[in-house]
Design a binder for these strands. Sequence first.
RNA 1: GCAGAGGUGGCGGAGCGGCCAAACGCGCUAGCUUGAGGGGCUAGUGGCUUAGUGCCUUCGAGAGUUCGAAUCUCUUCCUCUGCACCA
Length: 944
Amino acid sequence: MDSTTLEKKWSTRWTEAKVFQVDPVSTKEKKYITAAFPYPNSPQHIGHGRTYTTTDIYVRYLRLLGYNVLFPMAFHVTGTPIIAMAKRIADKDEDVLSVFERIYGISRETAAGLTEPRNLVMHFSHEIEEGMKEMGYSIDWRRKFYSFDQRFNKFIEWQFKKFKDMGLLVQGEHAVPWCPKDNNAVGAHDTKGDVDPEIKEFMWIKFRLKNSDLILVTGTTRPDALLGQSNLWIDPHGKYKIVQVKDEKWVVGDAAIAKIHSQFDSNAKIIGEITAKELIGKWAKGPIVNYELYILPAGFIDITVGSGLVYSALEDPVDLYELRKIQADSTLVKQYGLDPNVVAKLKPIPIINVEGMGEDLGDSIGKEFGVTSADQKDKLEEAKGELNRRVFRKGIMKNSCGKYSGMSVPDCQELIKKDLQKSQDGVMFWEIDNKPVYCRCGAEVIANVVKNQWFLNYGDESWKTKARECINSMSIIPEKNRADYLYIAGWLREKACTRAAGLGTRFPFDKTQMIEALSDSTIYMAFYTIAHLLNDFTPEQLDEKFFDYVLLGKGSGNAKLDKIRESFVYWYPLDSRHSGADLVRNHLPFFIFNHVAIFDKKHWPKQIVTNGFVLMDGKKMSKSMGNILPLRKAITEYGADVIRFSVVCGADLSSDTDFNKTVAEGTRTRIEQIAKMVESSGKAWKILMGSPASTADPLYGTHIGKWLNSRLNRRIQKASALYEKIQMRELSLEIFYGVFDDLKWYGKRNNGDYSGLHSFFVKWIPLIAPFMPHYAEEFWEMSGQTGLVATAKFPEVDPSVISDEVEAGEALVVKVREDIDNLETLLKKKPTKISIFVANDLKRRIYTIIAKEKAFDKIMKAASGDPEMKTKMDVVQKMAKSLAKNVHSLGSVSSAADELVALISAIDFFKNEFKCEIEVMLEDKSQHERAKNAMPGKPAIVLD
RNA sequence: GCAGAGGUGGCGGAGCGGCCAAACGCGCUAGCUUGAGGGGCUAGUGGCUUAGUGCCUUCGAGAGUUCGAAUCUCUUCCUCUGCACCA
C-alpha cells in the first residue's frame, strides 16, 4: 500500500472514531497542550511542520499514557501583513505572484481571487488545515476560530478591560517608523524589499545666538560630548530657515521642518530665512558649559541629517581634522571673514579618560587610523566609529566635568539627556537610522511620534514579580531558556498595544485603534476551552459579566454558563505551550505576563517548549533562494510519517535541524523494511492463531531473542524519560534507528527470519506510534491487534527480561566476529577451522586484582598472597604489563561460563558467517600455544 | 556595543574526565545482489604496522590542572543568533 492511501485510511478512521475530539471526563486526568497558531498569509512549509509535529508527538505520547488530551488549533489574522499581502496581490505585485507560482504552485487565476483579506485568510487557512490533517496532527478541530471572529473580539475586549481595571494600560508618546502617505506605522513587511526600518534617537540641543532671539538647534547622538563643546558647525552652502516653534525662533536646516511638524510642534511655521554666511563667525551659547561658541563652516555637514547643523567637540576626529584644516588655511579664514585669533586658539577640551589612550582622543584615534587630512572621509568615519565604541565601553568622565565627573559614559549620557529635557535645552527627536527606507506605496518612511499611544505597562514592578514567580515555577524546555525569560521579564517596559490599522479587535477605549497582534495572542488558549460552546450566544451576550463568570468564577451563572465554566476549569491550566524559538523574545514572555495578570495562580501555565528551525540542505529557507519546500508538497512526495520523522529527528530541540532528501529517503526505506518484518511476524502469528506460549516465543526461548527483548525493554525504559523531556533526537536514535539496528542484528543471527517477533512488535509499535502514527496503525492491524494504536497503552517495561549478562555476551559475539574478520584480512587466508579460546577464571581474578591495586608492585604483592596465583606469577606479570596502560579504566568482567555460553550459542552463526568449522573452549582445555593469549573479554582466536 | 550559542571526520552532528578513530545519519570507494533504477547486502573510508586483535596522531589556537582532557581552568582567534511594538 502506498503511503498516501495508507495515511488516508487511518486519518479517516481517526475522524470516524472522533479520537481527537475531547471533552471533560471527570474521572480522567487531563493534559492541555497548545502550539502557536499559524498566521495564514501564505501556505505552510516544512519548517512550520517542526513545531506542530513536536507538539503532536508529545500529545500522542500523553494520550498513550492514558490522559485525556486536548490539542486545539485556530488562526491568527491580526494586524497588517494579511492586508498588505492582499493589497500586493491586488496590485499584481510580480514578486508575490511569482513566489506563489514557483514555490507554492498557486496559479495566477487562484491568486486573482485573493485580493480581499478575508478571502486570502479563508484560502490559506484551509490550505493549512488540510496540511495539518494530512500530517496526522491529533487536533480537535471543533474549536477552530479566527482572531477576527466577533466572539473572539469580545474575549479580547474583556481582556483589555481587565488590564484597564488593573491600571496596566497607560498612555503616552511613542516614536515609530511611519508612512506619511498611508498614515500608519510601518513594519518590515510594509516596506520595499522587506527592510526593517530602524529608529534612532537624536537629541536636539538649543544654542542661543548672541544679541539675538534666534536659537540654533543642533542634533546629536552623544549629548555627553557637550561637556567638551568647542564650536558650532554649519553647512556653508546650506540655506537655513527660521521657524517659529511654540514661543521660540529656531534656526534649522530645510529638512528638519517636517520632523518638527511630525514629532514636536505641528503648528511650527517658517518665518524667515538665514544664510550660512550670515551665521558664520557669530557667537552662540548652549547648555552645560558656561562659555560661548564660535560658528564655523564645515564641509562634512549633511543638512538633511538631524536639524541640519551640529556642535563640535574636538575629541571627535571628524571635528578635529576639520578644524585643523581651517587653522592651516588662511585663505579659508579670509573667505569666511573669520577672526584668525579665535580660530587659532580653538583646541580640544578633554573630558573623557579612556584606558590605553592619550589625553587628546581625537588626535590619538586619528593617528591610530593613519588619518592625515579632513578629506579622508571614510577613514575618519571608521576612526570615529571605533572611538565611540571605546568611549562607550570604557570611557570615564574626567574630574573637570562637574557633577558628571567619574561617571561612565553611558550613565553620563542618560543623566545629561534627562537634565537637558528638564531644562528644555534639549528636545528628543527620532530618525530612521538606515534611511532611506521606502514604504510599498512609494513614500519614504519617516520617524513619527504618536501621541496618546496606548501601552501595556510591562514595566510594572509588581507585575514583573508575579511573572518571575511563574517563570521560576514552570518547566522550561530547553531549560537554558529560563535565563532568557527572566532576563526579558526584567527588560520589558511599556509595549504599544494598539495600531491605527489592521485586522483583529477594536481597542475598546479608542475605537479608532486596533489591538495589535502580539497583544491579542497572549491568553487565547483559554478561549479554545470554550470556543465550541459559544454558538448559542450572540456576540453581544458575551459581555464582561459572561467572561468574568466563565473564566474567573466571578458573579453568578446558570446551567448554561456552568457547563461552559466547567469546560474551562477542567482544561485549564495549560500543561504545555509549544512554539518556535523565535517567539522566546516576544510572544512567550507576553503569554506569561498576561496569564499571571489575569488568571488565578492555579491557572498559570505549567510548561513552555521551544524548538529551532528547519534548514533545507543546510541552508536557511527563503523566498529569494527559492528553496522553500511547502508542507503539502513534501507530504505527497515522501508521505506524512516520513516528513514527521525528518523534521523532528535531525537535531536537538534547541538547535536547527536539516531537512534533506537522502535522510527522508533513508527513513522511508527503513520503514518499508520494518513493514516487511511486521508482516511476516503477523502472518506467522495468525497461523498459530494466537500468542505463542512463552517458551516457544523466541523472545524468551532463544539466546538472541532474549538479547533483543532485553534491548527493547531497556529502550522503553529510556524512552519514557526522553519522551517526558521531549528529546526528539535521542528518542529517534533509541526507538527507531537503534531498534532497527537491533532487528538487523537479530535477523543476521537468526537466518533472516523475523517471523517470531510478534510479541516484540506489539510492544514496539505503540512506542513509535507518536512519531509515525499512520504506519503504526497499519502495523498494529497487521499484528492482529484490535482498536487503534492511537488510543493504546504505552508499553510497560519488564525489568525481569533486562539482562546485562545476555547483552554483554552478545557484545562479545560481535567483538569476536570483528576480530576474526580482521584476522582473515590480515592473514589473507580463508580458514578451514576457527578455534576460540575463552580465558580461565584465574585470569579473571588476576584481572580484578589489577583493577583494584593498579600499581605494579602492589599487584605483585597481592597476587603472591594467593596460593593459586603464586604458582603462576608469570601470568600475573604478563597481564599486569599489558593492562598497565589502562589500569585506571578497567571495567568489570563476566565469568568464563558466561562467555562460553554466549560464544557457544553463536557457533552456528559463526559457521554461517565464515563457512568453516568453529570450536569454542576454555583455554585450559587446549594444548594450543596461542590459547594462552586469551584474556577476559578477549578470547584468543586461532585460524587454521 | 550588550546578551546568548558554538568551533570535533568529506558533511550534519554525538561524546562533556578514562572503555573514543569518535555514536547515529549522509557522502565516497570496492565487491555482491535486483527486471534498468535515486533500492538492498558486505567490506573499507587519519597514519603506521601486525600471528596478531596493536601502536601513533588528531577534537579552532596557546597555556595550565590531572596518573589521564575533545571533555575542567585561563588566554586568544573566529562564526552564528537576538536586541521589540513586527507577525
